[in-house]
Amino acid sequence: MEIPLDDYVRGAAVATALVCTSPTVREPEGDALPDAEALAAFLERHRLRLDAVPERRPPSAADLFEVHLLRREVRGVMETATAEEAVAGAAVLAARAAREPVLRRDGKGRWQWYVTTSAGAPLAAELAAFLAIGLFGVVRRLGHRRFRACAAPGCRGVFADTSRAGERRYCMPDRCGNRLKVANHRRRQRLGGGVR
């Protein structure tokens, strides 16, 4: 796999999405990656073409187990207290499969930096390297303060805010943000009697 160094936003988004599949975050629904088929769908949804999962070979139960462990580690990087701790944690993830950066031309003939993954690296190791590049990019370009806890009451999600304004508040805006809007609307209805 080749990971472009300048596309950290995609890696950070997938890191957030992976953390948000956890049963810790998705109460009461449970784990969004309960089986290998769900992991395959997750990879497909995020357009991840890992060398460890060639066409037509679905992820295995062992791959799923390793990705569940990786999910905890990624969350740990996002919950670090300092930028140095986040970088150290991401470095551990990258070391599983990332090789030295290479400079080569992209499809448009421009010179770009890429990190390649080791041949034969397991799925979770390749995924770890991809996510690590995203997390490194967040620290370098946006700062450690962009790793945040979800602002929705009762949610235990964390996320990497790569928005331009840096004002994202929810780990899953369509879920947590909407839930909070509905709760606020209902509260206003109760307090105002529903009449305007």
Rank of each mutant, 00 (worst) to 15 (best):
T117G: 11
P122F: 07
C150T: 09
F159A: 05
L131I: 08
A88Q: 10
R99W: 09
R71L: 09
L131C: 12
A13Y: 01
A15N: 11
R56V: 08
R104Q: 14
R175M: 04
G89Y: 13
R141I: 01
A165H: 09
Y170T: 00
T80S: 15
Q112C: 11
A128P: 03
P122V: 15
A128L: 08
A98G: 11
R140H: 09
E85D: 15
V74H: 07
T116F: 03
E126H: 07
G193S: 12
M172K: 05
A151I: 04
P59T: 09
A90D: 08
E37K: 14
E85T: 11
G120F: 14
R57I: 07
G89C: 13
P59S: 11
A15R: 02
F136N: 01
A81S: 15
M1R: 06
A32E: 15
V138S: 01
G30V: 11
H144D: 05
Q112P: 01
A149C: 07
G76W: 07
D174L: 09
L33S: 02
V92M: 03
L64M: 06
D161A: 05
E29T: 08
A94W: 00
A90L: 07
F65T: 14
A32F: 06
C171I: 00
V102L: 14
V92D: 04
R49W: 04
R190M: 11
D6M: 11
R196S: 12
A97Y: 02
A149D: 09
A12T: 01
L48G: 00
V115N: 03
R168K: 12
L135P: 04
W111I: 10
H185N: 14
D7W: 08
E79D: 10
W113R: 12
G76I: 04
C171T: 06
R146S: 08
E66C: 09
R49T: 05
S118P: 01
S60P: 08
A40K: 00
F65N: 05
A124I: 13
R169S: 05
R186Q: 15
P58E: 14
E2A: 11
E29N: 09
R148M: 12
Q189V: 15
E29I: 02
G166C: 09
A124E: 06
W113Y: 08
G137C: 06
A97C: 08
T116G: 12
A94F: 03
G30S: 13
A183H: 07
